[in-house]
Amino acid sequence: MREYRADLHLHTCLSACAEVEMIPPLIVDEALHKGLDLIAVTDHNTSGNAGAVMEAARGSSLLVLPGMELQCQEEVEILCLFETLAQALAWQSEVETHLLPLSNDAERFGPQFLVDAAGEFVDEDARFYQGPVRMTLATAVHRVQTLGGLVIPAHIDRPSGGVLGVLGIWPPELESVDAAEVSPNIRPSQARQTYPFLPGIALITGSDAHWLDQMGRAITIFVMEEAPPTLACMRRAFHGEGNRRVYVP
């Protein structure tokens, strides 16, 4: 067993609200500098830059999971994490058919840049990611899990976008999730005190970084076997199987 320092919630320059410095080589450098072993790329409603970050990390000790922070129709946000880029892109093409038929207003929301592994400009994405997609939470959870992905409700304590802020109490469609993320503003133990009705699932945290300096400000430690981490290992760590576990330092 060994410890993996993980930050499973961060944005690239493809999220309109993120800084333009969030490009693959700088994200990888920052993660390594902060001693992270595992990160996930979770832009709003798209996985368009996930492959570029994975490529930028190739040959380093950093493992990058492709993912997405989806805002469902109810305006609840969930992290969707995948093992392979193919799974993430399959999910992205499903989500694309449910996007609101609006364009991103780069002047007001900020630009959305698709970049390559070197951080070079590829395209400006004008689709609307800064709001909910027309897919229910129930459908999203079911579809991500069917594709083999992990669903982790994001910053559950946050008034906007967090499941407890939006839906008040734990909804039935989240009974199948393996873990939930609390925001950097609260410790998991405080969350359990504040929300005694929370299910007995693992509580993790992540930085939700929108600029480099924020990366690693909140991390989760996975205690897992000495092998390249997989979603299956992470699931076992969430459930405390064997000597595996997760904790927030």
């Binding site: 305006e75 008034p159 906007s160 407890l164 802020g165 939006v166 839906l167 008040g168 109490i169």
Partner: peptide
Amino acid sequence: ADLLSCVM
């Protein structure tokens, strides 16, 4: 309100 935490 649409945020159920506010309604509660």
